[in-house]
Design a protein around this nucleic acid. Structure first.
Lengths: 354, 354
DNA sequence: ATGGATTTGTACGTATGTATC
DNA sequence: TGATACATACGTACAAATCCA
């Protein structure tokens, strides 16, 4: 333990004793002199360690009596939740999954969202750091891009606040995550078209988050593994801010000029936009185009063409994330392991065998 | 000042300087050496005084730079939000409206929902009372029924916590509310059918919340005012738990046996269920039935028959509720006035003139 | 009720390490 | 690189609170 100061080491040792319950609330700690002798440090050092523990609320001291372990301070018991969106699409279900689990375990949820905007993400993270939250669940904003808020995330880590990412992680941060296996989701979606004899397959993917990048990677590998050529002209990518213009221009072109018969979309929202454009050009699904989408949201059942879509665990994902955070909170901020949901394809009527 | 320790005296002096604003947030304090010389104490004493101030949060220190007066961090305040549902229908939009306004004004949102269940509502209210929330926005659970949690609501009132109800209020409680004028919404919906020459008009209403009761009242008065007979056989009512069985049985009967040509529904969800049943009986909208619904949710545009529906302010309602709570919080918990949104009809293709 | 032992609190001195500019 | 400022850590002495014989 050479990397630790003497007083930090001592503080660490004492905390360990308390956590391992060889010292229980109300118990008297060894005297300063005893610590001095046992750890071969000066009284000053012992006092510094104890004083820090007192400030943390772990112990209290009484002159003439000694130092004692504090009663377990009631935790404020709040978990922060930061998502990109709150009211749209599958997000309400994810949030509800989180909230239900938190409430059942007696925690409260502080919820805020970032609109997938880095400035708002910074504000959200600062807000969470200002409060003394016990844990946090974050859906990264634009997870595939460089994140200017790394500093705030590192502060969370430094403070030892149990953190779980959902849907994606930042490559440059080593944070536990609860995610869907998006690579295999994209692979599976593409394979569905290939197995229905489609050989000219387009794709529309979002590429400022990891989900989109992974799904795209799955798409590419599925093509490669099955000797389906992929033409870069048929792959359209967009970012949060450029979806609309992509839809207006490139997608119409993809539908009318290229010779694709199947299209894999990033999610059901894009798939529905795609449907509109296909219909506007007097074409039909699945007669003229087969579509496989992602997320299996309510949108996949809404339109007259019901979308074949790779399922997203939604509220189960939220529940799992909440479980992991709470386990860590309850067990002395122990390390959290990643959890990966396996993708499953839900077949509907948007794919035709050719 | 003989009654004070040296370090306490020094701490007192520094605090006084900050309170008198000769030292402002962000300002650099004199160095330890300067304090030592000015107050003729040892460095240890200076450090003790500063260390205590740091623990109080009054100052912070940076190695190599100096000590500084902290920014006044008023811990961001929290507003509790209790809704019946969280992930479905128009609720995400209401919640998002609330959250956006709260965040913009630097507040945090504690969110929980009741599933329209009194026990969960009690738990939610207790949770909010346990925390020291600064204000609360509540959507009443089963607002038309007697509420067993009146006690908790009265505690909120007694503590002077600014409270705003949304969507409905409890008759037995005098609480400010932000609502839609549901009576006129129901009236307006019914009038739309009457003006399209429908004379045999059915209705499906939820009656365990005030919205439903008011909309039903509007329906009745619209009929009365326009000399349209209303036949109690054509009015179907349900509660949270009985919707499904109502749909299975009575609604099929309403559609197939009675001679109604138009139907007013409590909301778009029921309207969509109704559409399913109509189609299952090989009937069509608006050819065989005209429907006017409430809430103008995404559901009213989703199905092939686009629903004429009375608009619900959704996120605007949430925003308004948040504004009112925050105004009260910021102005010493001053009394909050009700706010009533006027209903507006959004015409689509589910009504036919006969 | 008192004095001595124990334990923490206050206060001083000194030296060296480390971060910042 | 040196100067400055806080951090760590050793030492000593005495004060104040508590407990118990």
């Amino acid at each position: 333990m050479t990397f630790m100061n003497k007083h930090e080491y001592l503080r660490f040792e004492i905390k360990k004793m308390i956590e391992e319950e060889s010292l229980k609330p109300g118990d008297k700690l060894p005297t300063e002199l005893q610590f001095q002798e046992k750890y071969d440090v000066s009284r000053h050092t012992v006092r510094l360690a104890l004083s820090n523990l007192e400030n943390e609320g772990v112990i209290y001291k009484e002159q003439g009596l000694g130092s004692f372990v504090s009663e377990k301070k009631l935790k404020s018991k709040e978990i922060g939740v930061i998502t990109t969106y709150m009211s749209d699409y599958i997000f309400p279900y994810i949030i509800r999954g989180i909230e239900k689990e938190l409430t059942e375990q007696g925690y409260t949820m502080i919820l805020t969202s970032t609109d997938n905007n880095h400035d708002l993400e910074k504000r959200a993270l600062k807000m969470m750091l200002d409060r003394d939250i016990d844990g946090i669940i974050v859906e990264p904003t634009k997870s595939a891009l460089y994140n200017p808020n790394i500093g705030e995330y590192l502060k969370l880590k430094k403070r030892g606040i149990p953190t779980v990412m959902i849907n994606a992680t930042y490559a440059e941060l080593d944070m536990p995550a609860v995610i869907l296996d998006d690579y295999n989701a994209g692979y599976m979606a593409t394979l569905e078209l290939i197995e229905n004899n489609h050989t000219n397959i387009g794709g529309i993917f979002k590429i400022d988050d990891m989900q989109g990048k992974e799904r795209l990677k799955g798409y590419m590998n599925a093509c490669y593994d099955n000797d389906v050529e992929y033409n870069s002209k048929n792959i359209l990518v967009y970012e949060t801010e450029t979806l609309n213009e992509l839809m207006d221009q490139s997608v119409t072109k993809l539908v009318t000029e290229n010779n694709v018969t199947g299209i894999v979309t990033y999610n059901d929202k894009v798939a529905n936009d795609l449907l509109e454009i296909i219909w506007k050009n007097d074409l039909k699904v699945p007669d003229d185009f087969s579509i496989v989408s992602h997320d299996n949201s309510y949108l996949s059942e809404m339109s007259s063409t019901q979308l074949t879509s790779v399922d997203h665990p939604k509220s189960d994902l939220g529940k799992k994330a909440a479980e992991l955070v709470l386990t860590s909170v309850n067990n002395g901020n122990e390390k959290i392991e990643d959890y990966v949901f396996k993708p499953e394809l839900v077949r509907r009527t948007s794919v035709k065998k050719i």
